[in-house]
């Protein structure tokens, strides 16, 4: 598909900022998202091409206004739920439980 992710040759994104040079994870959630993605692939929950397709289906405006690892998080949610590894209900319930325990505040 010719999605916003297929951005080679598009003009108007402005200069590259070579000082934006981080290679390390900026927060624990980024590191966890990276690792959980690789481990889900290793467990056969989805394949890498499905993962890339899931990211390119992110609506264009959202794609451009979210960070790299948010794209990865989006594809994890999309694929693990659509393939039935867990349900949307289980997922929302778990988020609510963790929020009640204050688990997100630490990261």
């Amino acid at each position: 598909m010719r999605s916003i992710a297929d951005m080679g040759g598009i003009q108007g994104f402005g200069p590259v900022d070579p000082a934006d040079d981080d290679t390390r994870f900026k927060a624990e959630w980024e590191a966890d998202t990276f690792a959980v993605n690789l481990l889900s692939l290793a467990a056969g929950c989805f394949n890498i091409d499905e993962s890339r397709h899931s990211m390119e289906k992110i609506p264009a405006v959202e794609y451009l206004t979210t960070t790299y690892f948010e794209h990865w998080l989006h594809s994890l949610e999309d694929l693990l739920i659509s393939k039935g590894v867990f349900s949307q209900e289980e997922y929302q319930t778990r988020i609510a439980e963790l929020a009640a325990k204050g688990a997100g505040d630490a990261a």
């Binding site: 598909m1 297929d6 080679g8 890339r52 397709h53 390119e56």
Partner: peptide
Amino acid sequence: TFATHTRLPGYA
């Protein structure tokens, strides 16, 4: 023009 995944970039 595919609606599905492809690795042929649009510019090419």
